[in-house]
Write a protein that binds this DNA or RNA. Sequence first.
DNA 1: CGGCGAACTTACAGCGCTGTAAAAATGAGT
DNA 2: ACTCATTTTTACAGCGCTGTAAGTTCGCCG
Lengths: 339, 339
Amino acid sequence: MPNVRLSDVAKLAGVSPKTVSNVVHGYVHVRESTRTKVQNAIDELGYRPNMRGRNLATGRTRMIALAFPDLRIPYFAELAHVIAEEASARGYRLLLEESGSTIEVERAILSAEEAGIVDGVLFQPSYLTSTEIAQHRRDVPVVLLGESIAPLSVDHVRIDNIAAAAQVVGHLAASGRRRIAFLCAEVPAPSETSKQRLIGYQQGLEACGLPVDPSLVVTGSVADADAACASLAAALDAGMAPDAVLCRDDLAALGALRALSERGLRVPADVAITGWDDITLASSMHPSLTSVRADGAQLARRALDLLLERIDGYDGLGRHEIVGHSLVVRESAPAAPAG
Amino acid sequence: MPNVRLSDVAKLAGVSPKTVSNVVHGYVHVRESTRTKVQNAIDELGYRPNMRGRNLATGRTRMIALAFPDLRIPYFAELAHVIAEEASARGYRLLLEESGSTIEVERAILSAEEAGIVDGVLFQPSYLTSTEIAQHRRDVPVVLLGESIAPLSVDHVRIDNIAAAAQVVGHLAASGRRRIAFLCAEVPAPSETSKQRLIGYQQGLEACGLPVDPSLVVTGSVADADAACASLAAALDAGMAPDAVLCRDDLAALGALRALSERGLRVPADVAITGWDDITLASSMHPSLTSVRADGAQLARRALDLLLERIDGYDGLGRHEIVGHSLVVRESAPAAPAG
DNA sequence: CGGCGAACTTACAGCGCTGTAAAAATGAGT
DNA sequence: ACTCATTTTTACAGCGCTGTAAGTTCGCCG
């Protein structure tokens, strides 16, 4: 039973290939009797359209790539999920590309040595600079995600990190915290993400009339929970004594939780903790995690809106959009002052 | 600058299209001078191969689908990562398909209404029965992952769940635990995964000379950590008093941890806990989680071996393979008897 | 210097489908 | 029955690339 082609169906139904194609696509101007005849032929032969032929003929694949650092980071896995869902609703499939946060792979993603695999790319870079992104070949439409500073020519969707971080500080201050630490600024240079959250952290402190104490900004690695734990542990052992820790992401918060409890500090009684991203686990942990939650559905929707417009030929300036976020308050940093 | 085609390069270099193709593919029998000439033309025009044409001509896409329940479940995200890595090493890209654990989507995945998108499928079903899988159209090669009972005709890679569960029980017993609970068997009917782990649990108890006490098998939902927490909480409140809980996965263990500590039970002092899958977070939690770890790299390797053989035309009986696993001992269920 | 095998290059014929534009069929109106 | 406007169907020409098999050219031996 070799592969059945459109033309085989056409032959059996006694119509032209194009008519079969029209039926397959639900084209309206097909007489009911013809449609039935063709449909019967399709069923009888077990025909299914071959996407390779279709892709070549249409110049589209109805696939988009989602390129980001690492699927093992829960935030990205969850992001991929919502985007896949939204893409699927629009008839697109998702191809994953993990950059491993390496600049070489990020470059490779933008340069796309091979054309015609996907119709567009959603790209969350970690290290590529704005300049470099601006210079990429515009063969395939791209929409940027995340905190990278996007060039004017490229679309970009993100949340307002600065406002969100300030809001977290406000929440902590309102619950009576005075010595709010930040975990953490990477060395030698903080990532763009940390940078923005740090700015918001400082703005938040100022807005609350709290002193900005550089010694409360932990430096070190936050590559994963263990690294964050070690970074905070070192700071604590060196004498830092915060009553709250604003963590740059939920994984860091997890590490912080461990570093604190290993030192006999209770969360939230002695120290409040906030995370960022509100990964699924944040609500299940003990204590559950207060965390900044980006509006993932809106993010996915807008990012795809922009990308599909580009795919449809829009070629104007980059649109830079901000989607909503909220602070989900849970046990690790409750609203009421610590008891 | 419209798209540059192979033939444009050929024209500029003064050779036939096929020669350009040969150069692009690094075919050896190309004279050095010709190769240079062609390469220069490629560089000058900025040519990049169009995969749509290639795919149609070769009848391949060098993409494989990975179909499983849900990307938001850390185990699957991590599985996708290792498989993507291994696939990439073999020149394949990964397309993700989430079934949401719904039987309709699982059916759709197997029936593949559209041909030619991927060269093969790695499929971890949740609900599809062996019979149904056996009857699927064999248009596209499939390798099954996970615990589903695979039909004889289909390749399948998994770990030995029964042995692993028994091993966990052995570990707990060796550390002095006597009342080992199982969390949990889904109602109305346990999933295939839980079923196998339950069998191993029972075998383990028998092997250790411990009584098999049905009241220690918690029933309820383990859809996520919160559900598992509720299931265990209900059992505890009903009077169950285990000194260890073997959880069917790490998420359930996370829920168990919460249910126990909310009731003032210490882990591992009062109750030991083990998880399953050894997700990344298992090692970062506090206490860190003793967990069963499948050899993910080997799993990915073998699954792809089998799939690529099928893609290359192998058409024999299904191969059923078992890959290694290990018990990673951490704080939640240490080797030494509880202190 | 003719002859030969190996090294290199090419012509050809699609892969399976769709967009375009034009042809054929239909139906309403007169 | 014959227009004319619509609806329905079709012919055609690729989309961009590769496998096959059949040339060419080359170096080298006798």
